[in-house]
């Protein structure tokens, strides 16, 4: 397994405090990884560390084995980045934005960038500021893809987009990844759309990695248990309870299935990605990370 991003003991301290602490992370290559967490969880900080826009305060991070700070040009040439709020030079035409990409990137592929926008009927001679939000997002994506990156970092790429533009953007993204096999890390605080798009999940909470793993495996691992109102301690003996909701008559528990099977007389349901993520975000004391031993074998 090739690892796209690996970090060990990674931390970043700003004047206002720690944005990221003791972050041990492995994002395998060729996946679309969702980086999820509430605002201020450290998602942007992590992406900017991976790009070398920030220097770590503690620990280190590598991208395809390269340090983004000591091998800045190498990493910058291989990593496409769409920053938060998708900034563009608003007075440039689309064509001029692509020209910027051509001038500043050694591996630039004009056809990849311009062809994509033409297919989407985005006029290349229009000023960027006059495009719709969805079209601007596509220009940002084209600019990042024109670099022919091995890794694509997207910081809240669909925020402030209407639902249709959101869906278009994400389906474009899936097509590209399917065709080129590049690695994508996509940060978001909205989970709803991600299930269709992503196959790997990292939950950041208050600057720490809380959950990391394959989405499919994680969903299999978690169950919603509905049982007659009962003592949660009874469940907690065998399973890890991530979230518990009690009413007078029954309890709904989102549990991480442990070694022992759930009692057969209890009703169990599979969970959605969104339910699972929200359960974890509401309970920072529970975490699910690959065991270090397994990592060794996998690596």
């Amino acid at each position: 397994m090739t690892v796209a991003i690996r970090s060990a003991g990674l931390g970043k301290q700003y004047r206002s405090g720690w944005a990221l602490r003791d972050c041990n992370l492995q994002i395998p290559a060729g996946r679309i990884c969702a980086l999820v967490g509430p605002n201020g969880a450290g998602k942007t900080t992590l992406l900017r560390l991976a790009l070398g826009l920030l220097k770590p305060s503690t620990g280190d991070i590598s991208v395809f084995g390269w340090s983004p700070t000591t091998n800045a040009t190498l990493v910058l040439a291989r990593v496409g980045y769409v920053p938060q709020d998708r900034p563009l030079y608003r007075r440039f035409t689309v064509d001029e934005m692509l020209h910027l990409g051509r001038r500043l990137n050694p591996r630039w592929d004009q056809e990849v960038a311009a062809g994509r926008l033409r297919r989407l009927d985005i006029p290349l001679d229009r000023q960027v500021g006059q495009l719709s939000g969805g079209q601007q997002a596509q220009v940002s994506l084209a600019l990042a893809l024109g670099k022919r990156p091995d890794l694509l970092l997207l910081d809240e790429p669909v925020s402030n987009l209407d639902p249709l533009a959101r869906r278009q953007f994400l389906s474009e993204l899936v097509q590209v990844v399917a065709a080129d096999g590049l690695t994508v890390v996509l940060s978001s605080h909205v989970v709803a759309e991600l299930e269709r798009v992503c196959d790997h999940l990292v939950i950041l909470n208050s600057g720490r990695v809380q959950v990391m793993g394959e989405i499919e495996a994680l969903l299999e691992l978690h169950k919603l248990v509905i049982a007659p109102s009962l003592d949660p301690a009874q469940v907690a003996r065998d399973q890890t309870v991530v979230q518990a909701t009690h009413t007078e008559r029954q309890s709904a528990l989102l549990v991480k299935v442990g070694g022992k099977p759930v009692r057969s007389d209890w009703e169990t349901h599979s969970v959605s990605l969104e339910d699972m993520v929200l359960a974890y975000l509401g309970n920072p004391s529970v975490s699910t990370l690959p065991a270090p031993a397994l990592e060794e074998v996998a690596g």
Binding site: L53, L76, P83, Q84, P87, Y89, P106
Partner: peptide
Amino acid sequence: EQGTDQLVWSQGIT
């Protein structure tokens, strides 16, 4: 102000 520093600093030049 416009965030374009992030854009241009993530192109292929330092």
